[in-house]
Each structure stands twice: as structure tokens, then as C-alpha cells.
Design a protein around this nucleic acid. Structure first.
Lengths: 128, 128
DNA sequence: GATATAAATAGTAATAGTTCTTATTTCTGT
DNA sequence: ACAGAAATAAGAACTATTACTATTTATATC
């Protein structure tokens, strides 16, 4: 039986208000203002629970810590190879990729995860 | 100045002969037959060096250890959500994704990494 | 071939990110 | 109010990887 907790509610609200793709560590440090005794384990447990139930997204660039996203509407992500910043890319789900992959694979492809790389707007202009 | 080493040569050869997408740990344990004193650090250093110079590929599914691939010809990868096995998917580079992403992003998208998920042939048949 | 030098190694410590364990606290149904 | 179950805080443990350092090894030059 799932029970209410102030901490989980606060984590959910944090992700809903901040569209900064924070790490567990960032959420933890920020929520310490509200809950001085909150523990990192609680943040991880709840972030992963929320992600498992589809209320938030887990973003992994393949490098560095996992980031979380309160925006569950379909979109993709981008990491700047220069400064490491993470951005949203508003393109529709590329479901044709799954279909294409299925044609070339004996198993069943049900999904994919695509992460883009390049230069963010800031770094694009700061190139010396 | 880059110098020859028996260990690096053996690691390169291992990746060239085994198309099993091994982890650094697996390469380490297997090469111990040939070099009983080889160290895990040496394996990591060389795998990463080879990947940086484009001689092998680094594969990250976003979960678990990095895997390495001696097959540098363009292809994609798939992880079975049931058993965790990793497979090749022989589809051509989807460069149009970068173009599409660029249209919806202020920065410059130069590449992407796509990883597929689903059921491998074995697990597809073993569903009880 | 001997030798100097810089690169690579083995062995191990250290780190980053995350999960696990346990005693305590807090929900919530009765 | 209270019992039982779920969630928590605190910290230990774990996994994957990188860093450090003394020693070994490759290779350019003599």
C-alpha cells in the first residue's frame, strides 16, 4: 500500500516546478532548505519510484549522474560536449525508428532512447 | 609519443576477435590467461584510449557498466529488458535525426546516440 | 649492443554515483 | 487511540571507474 509522505510530495513538486533536469544530488541539496534532515537515500528512492510509475523521466547521457525531468510529454534531450549542459529538444517520438530496428532484428524492439550531442547556443557563440 | 605494449596489442586483438560487447571486467578476466599480472587499470586505460582514437566503440545503455565493441562499422545496439543481453542492430546511421534536431534547437547538433530496448530472440520465445 | 629517457604497467588507493540496511518515525485503516 | 505497515534518516556497502606511485619496458640515440 502506497502511503503519502511530505518528502515525496515535495520531490514531485520540485520536479514539476524546476525544468532544469536536476541530478538527485541537486534535488537533495535544494530540498534541505525545506527538510534539513532529508536523506539522499530518500531522494533517490522517491525519484526512482516516480520514474518507475511514469510521473517523471530518468535521463542518462551515458556519462555522469542520472538527471530527472518532470516534463513527461514526449521530447528528446541534448548534452553540450563543451560545457555539459543539458537541453530539451522538442521533436516528436520517432516511432519509425523502432519499426526500422524491428525489420533488422529477430527479437522485438519496443522502444529506444536517443540522446543528442553538439554545441549548446552559448558555447556555439563562445568558440574562440 | 605512443609506445607499443603487449597488453594494448592483446586488448585490441581481443576486441577484434570477440564480437560479444564485453565489459572492461570481462576483457580483464579473459586476458589474465595470457597476462596473469595484467591490471584492471591497464585494461580501462587502453580500452578508453582505443575508443578515443576511434579503433573501438564505447557502448552505454544507461544502465550497468560500459561495454566495448571492436566493430566500428556503423550500426546500432539493443539491450534486452528481460535478460540484459546486448545485440547489434544493422541499420544505417540515421543522420536525418541530427538534421531534424537542429531544426528544433538553437545550438548545433552534431551527433546522437540511440539505444534500442525490447525482448531478445531468446526471451521473446521464453515468455511463460 | 649499452644506455638514457619517457611511456606503460601493476598494484592499490581513492572517487563518484547509487543502493542497501536498520533502527526509528510517521501514516492511515480500524 | 492504537496497531501494523510503509517511509524515513543515517550511514554502511557496493559497483564502476579513475588516480597515484613505484617499477618495468620500449625505443631513440650513442
Amino acid at each position: 500500500m502506497l502511503r503519502h509522505s511530505k518528502q515525496r510530495e515535495s520531490i514531485r513538486r520540485y520536479l514539476d516546478m524546476h525544468r532544469t533536469h536536476p541530478t538527485a544530488e541537486t534535488v537533495y541539496l535544494d530540498l534541505k532548505q525545506e527538510f534539513p534532515n532529508i536523506s539522499l537515500g530518500t531522494v533517490y528512492r522517491n525519484l526512482n519510484g516516480l520514474a518507475d510509475s511514469g510521473e517523471i523521466l530518468r535521463i542518462s547521457s551515458g556519462d555522469g549522474p542520472v538527471r530527472y525531468d518532470g516534463n513527461t510529454s514526449p521530447h528528446y534531450h541534448f548534452t553540450c560536449t563543451e560545457c555539459g549542459s543539458l537541453h530539451d529538444i522538442a521533436i516528436a517520438p520517432q516511432t519509425q525508428l523502432n519499426a526500422l530496428a524491428n525489420k533488422h532484428f529477430e527479437g522485438t524492439v519496443t522502444g529506444h532512447s536517443t540522446h543528442f550531442f553538439g554545441l549548446c547556443p552559448k558555447c556555439k557563440n563562445n568558440i574562440l
